[in-house]
Simulated scan of single mutants.
Amino acid sequence: MAAKLKVFTWSDGFHAFTVATTSRPKALEAWGSRQDLFATGLARPLTGGPDYDAALAAPGEVVARGLAIDVGKIGKAKRVKTRGPSKAKAARIEKLDAALADLDQHHQAALADFETRQAALDAARREAEARYAAERQTLSGDLKAARG
């Protein structure tokens, strides 16, 4: 079953942008917004009117109505092109990703070294405990024989 369409709108002061979609995140995506316009109070659900009808007639398409420019004219909004990060930002992200991977690799190597050293310590402890137990048993036997 397809999700029920809801109509959302927001305005930049010059145009009202309206879209019929299933959720707020999808409306933000259709508008090409990187910020939550609903949280700031700029966007809101719409329940009726000409923008509502135009948006329902073209689900997923952003409908623009002029408020200060082309007043009252309703039509398809120009598609917003969402760009990726700038070259500088992409280079910084790549550098940080590499640094993070390098840090993870060094951490894993350090953990492996700790495990090796801990295994050696455990073996030395077992050996010391065995030596102690053998010497104690010998001395206890000698003490018993001397008392006896």
Rank of each mutant, 00 (worst) to 15 (best):
A109C: 05
G60N: 05
F114D: 00
F17A: 03
R117W: 00
L96T: 04
E94P: 11
Q137D: 15
A134L: 04
L46W: 13
D102M: 01
A64K: 14
K95C: 03
R136E: 07
A146G: 02
L28S: 09
K73W: 10
K76D: 06
Q105F: 02
G48T: 03
Q35P: 06
A55F: 05
S140V: 14
P85K: 14
A123Q: 07
D51S: 13
L111I: 06
P45H: 09
G66Q: 08
A27Y: 03
D97P: 07
K26T: 06
R34V: 09
P25I: 02
S11M: 09
V63M: 14
A145D: 11
L100T: 13
L42A: 11
G148F: 06
F8N: 10
T40Y: 00
R24N: 03
A58F: 05
K78D: 12
V7E: 09
L67Q: 07
A27K: 07
L67G: 01
Q108R: 15
K144W: 08
G41A: 08
A120Y: 00
A130T: 08
V63R: 03
A120R: 00
K26Q: 12
F14Q: 15
K144E: 13
A110N: 14
A110F: 05
A99I: 10
A112C: 04
P25R: 09
K73P: 05
W31E: 07
A146N: 11
A133G: 07
E129P: 00
A109I: 06
G49V: 04
G48M: 11
K89N: 14
H15L: 13
D53T: 14
Q105S: 05
A55M: 02
R34T: 12
S33L: 09
G148W: 13
A90R: 14
F14G: 15
A98N: 08
A2T: 10
A120L: 06
R125H: 12
L139R: 12
I74Q: 01
